[in-house]
């Protein structure tokens, strides 16, 4: 699995190179006008509609999943709907500040949470740890689990494809490949570290039986001042959640405006609040009808993984192909 993570990471980096080529094209910096120039207004509306569905599924699964984790591990006494409302409201507060300030917030989110990875160091050194637990490094056996795992990692590395929607906020001089590649590499290192730590800590056999292995692992962390550091760690992950949700909410609002044919008009606060309310209501509906009962199993998370994997695979290549075709024409 170690090499699987690295292999997926390398392939994702190739995808990022395609994405960087798109950003180097003259269309990316023009924003909506660039897309219209490339595809025509009708097609852009169609793509916006498809993108909006992808974004909605992503927002819903991230929010409901994170709410579930918080409810289970941090605050079991509070109603989930309230948790959902609080978390979503904070994301909206950031989004309402606008795209520029939302993009800036990533530095704050990173600074406030990068050190969490250091807390995993003790898991690399448990007394029962054995290097053999990591074997086989390259599995020769036919194992469906590994393909599912690779799909999951691929989907986890997705997200940069949404940057095409905010190309107008980047300067044409910005060389985005380097920061994107560094970010991707850091993510791969983090996944590797988490995978190795949880394998060494639980052993490969027990690891298969755990539904939230990383969270269950950090439940054993303690310090002289605080026990149960997992509660703190789960809470601090909200920084990433808030950033991601704010960005996605803005993209959702943007796609709604394109579908409604108001992309060239200035954004309005009332329009934004309306789209936020629609999004929140839809999420509540999904929660009450499809998520809460648990009868749907992992339908929504699996749907989100598939959507993320497809979008990350298809969008960069599609955009480059569109630029090439337009260039020939």
């Amino acid at each position: 699995m170690v090499w699987a993570i690295i292999a997926v990471g390398i392939i994702s980096n190739i995808n990022l190179m395609l994405l960087a080529k798109w950003f180097a094209s003259p269309y990316s910096g023009k924003g909506y006008a660039g897309f219209v120039e490339l595809f025509g207004e009708r097609k852009v509306r169609l793509f916006s509609f498809i993108g909006m569905l992808f974004i909605f599924v992503k927002i819903t699964v991230i929010t409901l999943g994170y709410t579930e984790i918080i409810h289970q591990f941090v605050l079991p006494s509070i109603q989930r709907e309230w948790l959902l409302a609080f978390l979503f409201a904070v994301g909206c507060y950031l989004a309402v500040k606008g795209m520029e300030k939302t993009i800036r917030f990533i530095f704050i989110a990173y600074l406030c949470s990068f050190w969490l990875i250091l807390l995993y160091i003790p898991f690399f050194l448990p007394p029962i740890a054995s290097i053999h637990d990591l074997y086989p490094i390259i599995s020769m056996e036919r194992d469906d689990g590994i393909w599912q795992g690779m799909l999951l990692i691929w989907a986890s590395l997705s997200g940069p494809e949404y940057l095409i929607c905010i190309g107008a906020w980047f300067s044409p001089r910005d060389k985005l490949l380097r920061p994107m590649a560094i970010g991707n590499a850091l993510t791969i290192v983090e996944y590797l570290a988490l995978f190795i730590a949880s394998t060494l800590y639980f052993g490969p056999e027990y690891l298969r039986k755990s539904s939230y292995p990383v969270i269950n692992m950090v439940r054993y962390l303690q310090s002289p001042i605080f026990e149960r550091l997992d509660i703190m760690m789960i809470c601090i992950h909200i920084f990433h959640y808030v950033f991601a949700i704010a960005l996605l909410i803005l993209l959702f609002y943007g796609s709604l405006r394109i579908i409604a044919g108001k992309a060239m008009k200035p954004a309005s606060r009332s329009g934004f609040i309306a789209s936020f309310m629609v999004l929140f209501l839809c999420m509540l509906i999904v929660y009450h009808w499809f998520w809460k009962s648990g009868t749907q199993g992992h339908f929504w998370p699996v749907l989100q993984v598939c959507f993320a994997a497809v979008s990350f695979l298809a969008v960069p290549a599609f955009m480059i192909a569109a630029v090439r075709i337009k260039g020939r024409a």
Partner: peptide, 21 residues
């Protein structure tokens, strides 16, 4: 008092968003 540690972290995030704005 309402959200425990989650409330403290949410409050700090709100503060940072405000300062960022």
């Amino acid at each position: 008092s309402y959200l425990g540690l989650l409330g403290v972290v949410l409050g700090i995030i709100l503060l940072l968003i405000h300062l960022n704005g």
